[in-house]
Structure formats: structure tokens, C-alpha cells
């Protein structure tokens, strides 16, 4: 490292110097809060079929439902309140995006460090597998995987991990190989410390910073990929729509003027991804020493 990683306490004030990034961060925080609190603030549980009424189907924004309440963003064909569906859908999107990225990060670190530590054919197998993954576009891998696995949030997350881990494995291995030869590792070994302890205590902290920025961008990419897969009909079950599936369901209504079923979820998806990307962009500017220009 030719520059020390930016100290966390100083990060926020410097982050805040960019007004757009700050606004994006604030909006992102708001969206995440809304998604997390969805079961308490959403007017309806859109996943509970017994709460839906077919006769409330396709109401335009602001119309009154049969029970007298007003539907702010309209309803879909099953009488599902779009606002509630967006809140719950963002939950799914964020969950799929974050869990898969964390999972891929953990798996990639594990495999990358393992490869660097054990060398030999363990390394060869792991790194060839990583090459294999990186030589294919993510959408293709996820598409084929999901076709094989079937529907469900767990399966989406598995597919999303499968398309992301290789980058982290490569980076972790490269960083670990560089660290491995340094004196403190040899010293730790000479002291008789167990391999796991050495890895956790010494190698891990050195590998993490460069991956954090990438992981942030990857969350956005994973959310977008999940939406695309749902749109293509591979992904989540119809009764628990994510944003991508809501857009896909509303797609059929776009031409008939019932824009809200597809438009608002699309807007929410766009907002989520743009905010994450803006925040990640600013983080990169701050954390990447080569681009310290203010």
C-alpha cells in the first residue's frame, strides 16, 4: 500500500463535501429504512393472498379500494397495493443483493486465501474454476443455474453468489501471496501459530479494503441482475414479487395505459441502483489514493 487507507472517522465529512453523493446516501438510507420497516409501514401484506381482493385489481393511483382506503400508487391485477409491493419488493432486492454479495465475498476470500495458503493442486482447481466463472458473462451463468435450480429467493442468492465469488477469490489470493512472503507471517509461523489464526488475524485485514468498494458496486449489479432474471421469468415465485417481477407483470399493461404497475417499481429499482452506484462512486474517489483530487 502506497497510501494509508482513509481513516473511517474522517470519511463522512469528506464524503459530505460532494452534495450529490450525500443526497444519494440520504435517499439510500431512507429507502433501506422503508424496506426494513415494510411489515410495519406498508398498508397491506402483499404476499398474503387472503388480504388481496380481485375486485380491487388494477386501480389507478389515488383510487379508493373496496374497503375505503386510498391506494396511493394503484394496484396490480390481483388487487395488490403497489406501494406495499414496492416496499416488500425492495426488501427482497436488498436482501438478495446484500446477502449474495456478502456470501460471494466470504466464499471468495475463503477460496482465495485457501488457494494462496495451500498452493499445489488445491490452488490450481480453485483458480481454474475462478477463470471459468470470469470467462462467462454473469447473466449467462445465472440463467443456466436458475433454469436448473428452480424458483426461490435462496436459489437466486446461490446463483448470484456463483457469478460473483471469483473476483474476490482472485484478489484475495493475489494479496495473500504478496503478504505471505513478508516477515511477520514467517515470524507468526515460527511462533507456531495455527494457519487459520494467521489467516484471520493478519491476512484478512490486509485484503479487505480494496474489496469493499467493489462489493458496494456489486450489490447494485446483483440487484439489477436479480431484476433481470425475474423479468425473464426465472427467479422468484409469483406470489412474492420482487421489483423485477413487478415490472415484468406490469410490462403486459404498459401498452394499455396502466403504466403504474410497471412504472413505479421500475422507478424504485432505478432509485435503489443509482443511489448505491453514486455512493460507491464517491467511496472510490475517497478510498482510491490515485484519485485523491478533491
Amino acid at each position: 500500500m502506497n497510501a494509508p487507507p482513509a481513516a473511517l472517522p474522517g470519511l463522512l465529512p469528506r464524503f459530505a463535501r460532494d452534495g450529490v453523493a450525500l443526497a444519494a446516501l440520504a435517499l439510500l438510507a431512507l429507502l433501506i429504512a422503508a424496506a426494513v420497516l415494510a411489515p410495519w409501514i406498508a398498508p397491506q401484506n402483499p404476499y398474503d393472498l387472503a388480504q388481496l381482493d380481485l375486485l380491487d385489481g388494477r386501480l389507478p393511483p389515488g383510487a379508493l379500494a373496496a374497503d375505503g382506503r386510498s391506494v396511493l400508487l394503484g394496484t396490480d391485477d390481483q388487487g395488490r397495493d403497489i406501494l406495499s409491493a414496492i416496499l416488500y419488493g425492495m426488501r427482497t432486492s436488498l436482501l438478495a443483493g446484500t446477502l449474495s454479495t456478502l456470501g460471494a465475498l466470504a466464499l471468495g476470500l475463503l477460496l482465495g486465501l485457501g488457494a494462496a495458503w495451500f498452493r499445489g493442486w488445491t490452488e490450481a482447481i480453485i483458480m481454474r474454476a475462478a477463470d471459468l466463472q470470469l470467462s462467462f458473462p454473469s447473466i449467462l451463468i445465472a440463467l443456466v443455474l436458475l433454469a436448473l435450480l428452480g424458483q426461490g429467493l435462496d436459489k437466486i442468492i446461490i446463483a448470484l453468489i456463483a457469478v460473483q465469488w471469483a473476483y474476490y477469490a482472485r484478489t484475495a489470493r493475489a494479496a495473500a501471496l504478496a503478504e505471505r512472503e513478508k516477515d511477520y507471517i514467517s515470524a507468526a509461523r515460527a511462533l507456531g501459530l495455527k494457519p487459520l489464526r494467521i489467516i484471520l488475524a493478519h491476512l484478512l485485514p490486509n485484503c479487505l479494503p480494496p474489496m469493499t468498494v467493489v462489493a458496494t458496486v456489486q450489490i447494485a449489479a446483483a440487484i439489477s441482475l436479480e431484476a433481470t432474471l425475474s423479468f425473464l421469468g426465472l427467479g422468484l415465485p409469483i406470489t412474492e414479487p420482487s421489483l423485477g417481477l413487478l415490472i415484468a407483470n406490469g410490462y403486459a399493461y404498459l401498452l394499455s395505459g396502466k403504466y403504474w404497475i410497471s412504472f413505479f417499481p421500475g422507478l424504485a429499482l432505478l432509485g435503489l441502483i443509482v443511489c448505491i452506484n453514486l455512493v460507491a462512486d464517491r467511496l472510490r474517489d475517497l478510498l482510491d489514493p490515485r484519485r485523491m483530487a478533491g
Binding site: 393472498l49 388481496l52 381482493d53 380481485l54 390481483q78 424458483q151 415465485p237 409469483i238 406470489t239
Partner: peptide, 24 residues
């Protein structure tokens, strides 16, 4: 898939709690 959900709604109202699974 919409028909399946609509029927599930209606069955839920008479006491048959119905889950929906749709497949290609």
C-alpha cells in the same frame, strides 16, 4: 399465473388456506 392466485384468494375466504406455486 393470475388465475391461480385469484382462485387461491377465493379458497382462502372459505377456510381453505391455499398457497400458490407456479412453474414453467
Amino acid at each position: 399465473d393470475q388465475i391461480a392466485q385469484a382462485v387461491a384468494q377465493m379458497l382462502a375466504r372459505v377456510g381453505i388456506a391455499t398457497k400458490v406455486e407456479t412453474l414453467p
